[in-house]
Design a protein around this nucleic acid. Sequence first.
RNA 1: GGAGUUGGCCAGACAGCCGCUGUUGCCGCAAGGUAAUAGAGGAAAGUCCGGGCUCCGCAGGGCAGGGUGCCAGGUAACACCUGGGAGGCGUGAGCCUAUGGAAAGUGCCACAGAAAAUAUACCGCCGAUGUGCCGUAAGGCGCAGGUAAGGGUGAAAUGGUGCGGUAAGAGCGCACCGCGCGACUGGUAACAGGCGUGGCAGGGAAAACCCCACCCGGAGCAAGACCAAAUAGGGGAACGAUAGUGCGGCCCGCACUGUUCCCGGGUAGGUUGCUUGAGGUGUACGGUGACGUGCAUCCCAGAUGAAUGGCUGUCCAUGACAGAACCCGGCUUAUCGGCCAACUCUUUUU
Length: 179
Amino acid sequence: MRSAPNVFPADPRDHDRDSVAGDRGTGGAGKEVAGAARPVLCRFTVHHRLLKPYEYEQVFTATGQRRVPGAASVPAPPPGSGYQSSSGGVMLRARRNGGDLPRLGLIISKKSIKRAVDRNRVKRTTRESFRLCQGRLSGLDVVIMSRAGLGELSGPALRAILDKHWDALARWMERWKKA
RNA sequence: GGAGUUGGCCAGACAGCCGCUGUUGCCGCAAGGUAAUAGAGGAAAGUCCGGGCUCCGCAGGGCAGGGUGCCAGGUAACACCUGGGAGGCGUGAGCCUAUGGAAAGUGCCACAGAAAAUAUACCGCCGAUGUGCCGUAAGGCGCAGGUAAGGGUGAAAUGGUGCGGUAAGAGCGCACCGCGCGACUGGUAACAGGCGUGGCAGGGAAAACCCCACCCGGAGCAAGACCAAAUAGGGGAACGAUAGUGCGGCCCGCACUGUUCCCGGGUAGGUUGCUUGAGGUGUACGGUGACGUGCAUCCCAGAUGAAUGGCUGUCCAUGACAGAACCCGGCUUAUCGGCCAACUCUUUUU
């Protein structure tokens, strides 16, 4: 016993959300205008995260580092599909995942940042920065690792470091698209 | 007003925008969308105790090992809390105490000191008693010996003060204090009080072993339970007028191979355990109190590569220590600043 008129306008809205590059937000009703005015790109859900050890392993294999010797389940990547950089206590590794969504994984070790409060703060700041920059990082799996001393940085300082990383990564992605 | 003691409370506030996780409603086949709502702490920490819960096991007794240690109560339980006793600190409110036994035994106590435990004679005092010598004598000098008052050493040296006593001294005698023992009185008890009695038993350490009393199974949510690809391949059933191989001269038959189904197993992964609880708040009653009982009312984080955040503005005037991971009760440690209540001391005024 579902009301038929409600079904119809809900469908196109859903498609807008799913397609990342969708730029046709000009709907008819007032509610839909408010919904389209929101920056749709700045969400951060479960699908934006690396969840399984296998997914982390793919990134490490693509950047030429095999962490677990027995991880034979990861197929050998084509050359040039991975990217890595390191500066300011932040190590970044990335690979193309073949899809549109960017995905983020965090490895913040207890060894590098001692206090749980600092670890949580670094994770939150990194996620927030990734969330705001994800429009330039589509189709990438990114893993952020921490080095010692990262816990002493303030929020703005950490954000500046991450912005540099995102810039470099986006440039690398542009070059690959032209080639 | 100043100084302080105890107990309790808060842990920047507000607004806007963008995000995250759970729950509920609606929409959607689903993925998901949308609205509402909730979303770290007083210590969430250290993991030092005590429990619940789970599995192993079945715990009745003994041994070993470990824990606790004045008494009574509270509690699910405790090493916690409350009340009391004893000792100590403080003018006081109050605070502190690893607070059973060292005359059951074994062992230890550096240095110093004569001696560190059956006490002892280094200095000192005496030399009444016995005796040697000198002297007419009074007496003197010695020896045997007496002595624990005084000195010195030490953390600690056979209880302290006073009087008597003596050759000098000594619980040798006496008084008071301290100590031990005995019965009595008060108290549930720890203990206290006075009475009688004993001349006094000797330092520390039980966080050395030990003795006494009481208590204690082990491992922990990565506990455990369930679903279950792939791979390996165990068991059972059914199907075989007919297949293949082996046994056999042949048939029946037997063994293995076959197809289908079921069971078992449990890896990757997933679900659950997972938050309604020795729960909070209010109130009445009982109790000095910890707390208990009754009634009413509320639902108050539940992530799992791990949510509770970011930016901007205003104000107070710069916000410390710090982040749940099965859950409770405690302890300990870290901590910027502030508020409230009760009480104490002191100054001034009335």
